[in-house]
Design a protein around this nucleic acid. Sequence first.
RNA 1: UGGGCCGUCGCCAAGCGGUAAGGCACCGGGUUUUGAUCCCGGCAUUCGCAGGUUCGAAUCCUGCCGGCCCAGCCA
Length: 561
Amino acid sequence: MNTPETSPTSNFIRQIIDEDLRNGRNGGRVATRFPPEPNGYLHLGHAKSICLNFGIAQDYHGTCNLRFDDTNPEKENVEYIESIQQDVQWLGYRWDELFFASDYFDKLYEYAEDLIRAGKAYVCDLDAEQMREHRGTLTEAGRDSPYRERSVDENLDLFRRMRAGEFEDGARVLRARIDMASPNINLRDPTLYRIRRGAVHHQTGEAWPIYPMYDYTHTLSDAVEGITHSLCTLEFEDHRPLYNWFLEHLDVPAHPRQYEFGRLNLEYTVLSKRKLTELVAEGHVQGWDDPRMPTIAGIRRRGYPPEAVRDFCDRIGVTKSDGMVEMAMLENSVREALDVSAPRAMAVLNPLRLVIEDYPEDRVELMVASNHPKDASMGTRSIPFTRELYIDRDDFMEVAPNAKYKRLTLGGEVRLRNAYVIRCDRVVRDDAGDIVELRCSHDPATLGANPEGRKVKGVVHWVSARLGVPAEVRLYDRLFQVPNPGAAKDRDWREDLNPESLVTLQAVVEPMLAEAPAGSRFQFEREGYFCIDTRESAPGHLVCNRTITLRDTWAKLSAQT
RNA sequence: UGGGCCGUCGCCAAGCGGUAAGGCACCGGGUUUUGAUCCCGGCAUUCGCAGGUUCGAAUCCUGCCGGCCCAGCCA
């Protein structure tokens, strides 16, 4: 529950809270909230907001509510409501109270009548097209609506009839009466309520033919819950004057303050709900929890540990500048978390048969391997060693390409991890001339000991050919092949998708993995971190997802030359 | 060209008038039965640019330049 892995870094919002506390504001109380709209799955951008809001509540001994901003029934549904709760909890946070903005519909309606009575809101009969024309442009002031001067009584009557369901969708709206000439477009008499008679709300059913708009609802929900610091992203900066206008003109129980921070942008992926929805709807991925998705559900299935996500959010910080974070940052947090927590295992991804000719046919030796090289408390396991094994094709070359090469060569020696040093004596080829088998001999004196009079620098992992277990291994790579998908104006962002973001292999893994529970994470030594797929792995059909590769300086050096 | 905001190392980010933290990445070196991990070392005379104030400026002022956001009865 707590996040002991890092001490929270300060940021401008925490500085503001520190100062508020020094000045005795809000009676020393700190209350935040995470307010998602249930119209999609949560992604890494939301994780940043979740860590910020819940993290502050934790550190300041305050509270953080989960509140569904559910004012648009046409786009929302219960599947999203459930996934969002699951994702927040998976990240390691518990909300103080769970609310829906729709819980406040009655109260919100009362506030709207208050505004009308105060002459601060009116019913407008302009249609959407006309309203746009009256709004003006970024550089020209708007014009008053012809309905702006309706009497309080008429407005009250009309609004009550809106609520009673007397008017068609779009026939009228309730608007705030502010200033059509404001340089801030959000203040040009914004819409407060619209009519949606046919909509069935996932919480309130058909009780309401009218629905309140975001700015109005969000502000008053914050006030009703006694939120002290209302944190949102930069694009709402322009809305703050409207936020404050509602608080000034209504008799509310609290005056929260809104602060805005930069949203997360991550290289080689997209973090827009619209684009993620399209990826799912258009079948570019297999669902919201596809391991290539930057959704919480996706990275969970991919094998990212929650503490890695929290660590990442802590490291990127919270500021008002909007930047693009390199994928290497996230990957570092993931590797760091997995290195300490993932038990080691051996798996051969591209099997090449290897026969130890001087090893008895019927012999099975149980090699003892530690589950973690630096953490003895993780214990040991035994791995069956037999005359016929598999090693990875990439670990053999007939001739070493250079002096730095440490893997197996024809006539060369290599250490089999947790077992003997072997030498390759000859290769067997098929009719096409491709190598299909390695014939080797072993040095019996090298079990747990270095060979006499020579040093063997290479170490290679292996799996028993007879006792190994087949597994489907899914190698995941970045979803997009460019750092900023869609940045090129002449090309649709979909064209930037990486066609090789998923490569499926038939591998052979050590027997113990067949017994591993779904979702468990391992380091396949010399290959990377993998987890047992929670959706499709089954007894007799093991499916392993590659979470991330190991750092590979050899591959980097090879690529340079 | 109206309004709001941002600009410190390749990326993220401290700094809040006293003379540039840290992380990631990168580059060297050491340990290692994972070319992993770990360890050691290197990496901004300079803070978008130009002026000004000051004994002293990344920090204050002025003017430019560059970037992001806003014209839903979406959030």
